[in-house]
Design a protein around this nucleic acid. Structure first.
Length: 540
DNA sequence: CTGAGCGTTGAAGCG
DNA sequence: TCGCTTCAACGCTCA
């Protein structure tokens, strides 16, 4: 008998044992020849990245819980999780050699950094004569297949996207791999020296500042994900009637499923979600439909993934073929006030504080704060907001984060920039008494329902009575929405005009390398002086 | 080339 | 409380 050789599955996203084709593969191969193989499901953690990755404490905790749970799931299958410290480029040559690796499997990803990394690892594997097999399982529909059915381009409207996928068949999710006959945990030379060298990191290893951890409302991991899926789908009436615009952004407990973090990390398979949801809809003729239905929500995720696959610069304005070029301005004080929930608009601040504490906010709450930061009030680039969400949102997923920011800033997909969310009126619709604000902006807790959305209107004497003086205990408004949102609509109009001109006048420019890509033309500025035009016309 | 119809989720005023 | 209109008027798609 020759020496054992190793089958590696590399976890990145997809932190689950159910419906995981790349993991399934190595188990399957091992079952076929149990004596021959050592199987090693690995996760690679680069400690040197902990500093500069834009990942907040709550998100690290979600990852840590997910890895811990994943390890338990794998142990139940007579394997374990090996968390390898280092970066993939340094780690893999070592593992290929030391473990006598025969096969490497992983789930494909479309993020540009991942594409580059994976290409390098594949090359490396080839050099070490290691076979590589990859699978698409992060979304229901493979974005490349969807593009293929749209003449090689990503569909850029939701309806078009729907039209394509409705003709496609969703892949059948896989079961968990069958349990290995006997314990298949192998030890290598490094483990002899340090038996804990592949253990799941502790929370303290990942989170530098424990004070930043909020209440753990959504614990990471596959076990929790499946529990949450069952709970979400158990109320059939709720599922079939679901319409996103009718769910409250500011309820004290989430009005939606909060499956998004589990989908992002892959603790939950989107294909399993799709299958179970499909079964419910099939059994209940009367149900809501995309885009507003629950299935519609899952399809939005698919939509953005596909759109992002078609554009490597999806997460920035410049060089992004789908993105309107808009002369945003910088304002560090305003950005900081927004980031930490100190804009002086209680509804906006409550949302930003919930985000920081809990790592999740309702989709419509994201709309409100995103509109406020960009085209609505502060006129700050959506890329700045994207960074803050990236750090704080448990469900932060590259394609979805960028896509939604472009949507809300009317930079792509959505263009009715004159529809502006009011930081005062919008929240009142679903929470007229302001209970949500009292919870997350407790300094305003004693303000009565009629005043809590606009505390600056309260007379000073009453402010004292309510124990919160505006300007002392809670900030003044950093901008006057009634004024700035109108100015910003005009700015948007001007910016759109410049984009239109660039687009139609584009044929004149000689464009060397026949690119469909818009050349980095602008900075177009559209005459935005630092002086916002004071001249307001009194129309009417 | 042109124009009508459409687009996940606006706000405010009206009856 | 709801449903309608107006506000001012966008880009994209498709016939």
């Amino acid at each position: 008998m020759s020496e054992k050789s190793t089958l590696i599955h590399w976890f990145r996203k997809g932190l689950r044992t159910h419906d995981n084709p790349a993991l399934f593969k190595i188990f399957e191969k091992s079952h076929a020849d149990p004596q021959k193989y050592c199987i090693r499901p690995i996760f690679i953690l680069d400690p040197s990245l902990l500093q500069w990755l834009r990942v907040g404490a709550n998100r690290w905790r979600f990852l840590q819980r997910s890895l811990d749970d994943l390890n338990k799931q794998l142990m139940a299958l007579n394997s374990r999780l090996y968390v390898v410290r280092g970066n993939p480029n340094n780690v893999f040559p070592r593992l290929f050699k030391e473990w006598q690796t025969e096969l490497l499997t992983f789930e494909e990803d479309i993020e540009p950094f991942a594409l580059k990394r994976d290409a390098e690892i594949k090359t490396m594997a080839r050099e070490h004569k290691v076979e590589v097999e990859t699978f698409w399982s992060h979304t229901v529909f493979n974005p490349y297949t969807v593009m293929q059915k749209n003449m090689g381009k990503a569909p850029l409207t939701y309806q078009k996207f729907l039209g394509i996928i409705e003709k496609m068949k969703a892949p059948e999710p896989l079961e968990r791999p069958e349990k290995l006959k006997r314990n298949n945990v192998c030890k290598d030379g490094w483990e002899v020296e340090d038996e804990k060298c592949y253990d799941v990191p502790l929370l303290a290893d990942l989170v530098k500042n424990m004070d930043e951890l909020g209440e753990e409302k959504f614990p990471g991991g596959e076990t929790e994900a499946l529990k949450r899926l069952e709970a979400s789908l158990s109320n059939v009436g709720w599922v079939t009637a679901f319409e996103k615009p009718n769910t409250a952004p500011n309820s004290l407990e989430p009005s939606t499923t909060v499956l998004s973090p589990y989908l992002k990390f892959g603790c939950l398979s989107s294909r399993l979600f799709h299958k179970k949801l499909s079964a419910i809809l099939k059994a209940n003729a009367k149900h809501s439909k995309p885009p507003v239905s629950l299935m519609g929500q899952l399809y939005w995720r698919e939509f953005y993934y596909t759109a992002a696959t078609g554009e490597p610069n999806f997460d920035r304005m410049i060089g992004n073929s789908v993105c309107m070029q808009i002369p945003w301005q910088t304002n560090d004080a305003h950005l900081e006030a927004w980031t930490y929930g100190r804009t002086g608009y209680p509804f906006i601040d409550a949302i930003m504080r919930q985000l920081r504490q809990e790592g999740w906010i309702h989709h419509l709450a994201r709309h409100a704060v995103a509109c406020f930061l960009t085209r609505g009030d502060l006129w700050i680039s959506w890329e700045e907001g994207q960074k803050v969400f990236e750090e704080l949102l448990l469900d932060q997923d590259w394609a979805l984060n960028a896509g939604n920011w472009m949507w809300l800033s009317a930079s792509a997909f959505f263009y009715q920039y004159f529809r502006v969310y009011s930081p005062v009126a919008f929240g009142k619709k679903t929470d007229p008494t302001g209970a949500y604000i009292r919870k997350y902006v407790p300094e305003l807790a004693k303000y009565p329902a009629g005043a809590i959305y606009e505390p600056w209107k309260v007379a000073l004497g009453d402010q004292r009575k309510y124990g919160c003086v505006i300007g002392t205990d809670y900030p003044h408004r950093i901008v006057n929405h009634d004024i700035v949102h109108k100015e910003n609509i005009k700015r948007m109009s001007a910016a759109y005009k410049v984009n239109r001109e660039v687009k139609t006048g584009k044929e004149d420019q000689e464009d060397g390398g026949g690119g469909k890509k818009r050349k980095r033309d602008t900075s177009a500025g559209g005459g935005n002086g630092p002086s916002g035009s004071k001249a307001k016309k009194k129309k009417k």
